[in-house]
């Protein structure tokens, strides 16, 4: 089942939450809507679900080419998982999952036996067998999350929509659950769109990442594409760490620093900065200000001698050892790969 949003606009007063968004999600894909808070990603998700409506006169929502713009949420056959799960507090896990089946019209409602089988099957699927009789408040955050997922799947949705699915969980559970969600998605193979503000999360599990900012889509691409070839300055800053250098400082007439960019800036990731001893003339002089070596990579904070701009660099621990660096040492910097946004290229 594909999802298509065409020219979706939504304004709250004078604030444009969505300024004409077009998006297409291919069937069976796991797609992340990534952006900072206020970028419009949750609004877009809720409009796709039918929980909110786009501004009158703006575009359409299509599921597999079928126009669902005017359908109420219950008839769109979407599974929606809320950020805080929105489990029904007064119902057991079993009744929460069974809810969507019980509210069906009598002739579409499965008989009690079949209903119970389906609930149990779903509980097995989300790896929570035996928890039928619990109430939501008796579950851990990760368990609630999976119950919410099972409840959404019970109605056999055409698409699955998740709003910050791991936002309310602590870091360790988050990492486990997102890997689990990836495997789970491969198993059930339902088109899934999830909202997140965590780039690590999006890059790790999504087939495709949609990066939003200020009500617009900045870039759509595979995780590798958006990381390696960010389409806009925003994406470059938002996805991964980056140093933004003023071009004169970066260039300094030095060939190894590549071209002076037309927007006056160079975007370079910390790991794309090479540090060499302060010999020869290639690169830019900088002073080591801080060395943070507690981790797989060593992170260095350096200050350029000429411009006094601060640069973050990441090098491997063996490299650090080979350079034998200390704080206040003078070194030279070279860029392996940099971006400018008049035309994107790599050195």
């Amino acid at each position: 089942m594909s999802i298509e949003a065409q020219n979706i606009r939504r304004a709250f007063g004078t604030f444009a939450a969505l300024a004409g968004v077009d998006l297409k999600v291919e069937p069976g894909k796991l797609v992340a809507l990534l952006g900072p808070s206020g970028s419009g990603k949750t609004t877009l998700l809720r409009i796709i679900a039918g929980l909110e409506f786009a501004d009158p006169g703006s575009g359409r929502i299509l599921f597999d080419g079928e126009d669902v713009t005017d359908l109420p949420p219950g008839r769109r056959k979407v599974g929606f998982v809320f950020q805080h799960y929105a489990l029904f507090r007064h119902l057991t896990v079993f009744e929460n999952i069974a809810f969507g089946l019980r509210v069906r019209r009598r002739r579409e409602r499965p008989p009690e036996r079949e209903l119970a089988d389906r609930v149990r099957h779903l509980l097995d699927l989300v790896q929570l067998p035996g928890l039928e009789a619990r109430y939501p408040h008796q579950l851990s955050g990760g368990q609630r999350q999976r119950v919410a997922l099972a409840r959404a799947l019970a109605v056999e949705p055409r698409v699955l929509l998740l709003d910050e699915p791991f936002g309310a969980l602590d870091a360790k559970v988050r990492r486990e659950l997102r890997r689990w969600l990836r495997r789970f998605h491969d198993e059930i193979n339902v088109t899934t769109l999830f909202v997140t503000h965590d780039q690590e999360e999006a890059l790790e599990i999504a087939d495709e990442v949609v990066i939003m900012n200020q009500g617009r889509i900045e870039q759509v691409g595979t995780p590798q594409e958006v990381y390696d070839r960010p389409a806009t300055p925003f994406v470059h800053q938002f996805v991964g760490n980056v140093n933004i250098l003023r071009a004169p400082a970066a260039g300094g007439g030095d060939a190894s620093f590549g071209r002076v960019m037309r927007d006056g800036r160079i975007y370079v990731r910390p790991q794309d900065i090479e540090i060499v001893p302060h010999e020869g003339r290639d690169g830019l002089s900088a002073i080591v200000r801080h060395i943070h070596a507690a981790g797989p990579q060593a992170r260095l904070t350096l200050e350029q001698v000429q411009s006094r701009e601060v640069v973050e660099a990441e090098i491997s621990r063996p490299e650090l050892g080979a350079l034998n660096l200390r704080v206040n040492d003078l070194v030279r910097l070279r860029l392996r790969q940099a971006h400018s946004f008049d035309d994107s290229y790599a050195i």
Partner: peptide, 21 residues
């Protein structure tokens, strides 16, 4: 309103949402 919205996505009518949620 989250629980009511959840009921709506699961196909509950207005009355069902009110009485059950």
């Amino acid at each position: 309103n989250d629980e009511e919205y959840a009921a709506a996505t699961l196909g509950a009518s207005g009355w069902q949402t009110f009485w059950r949620v």
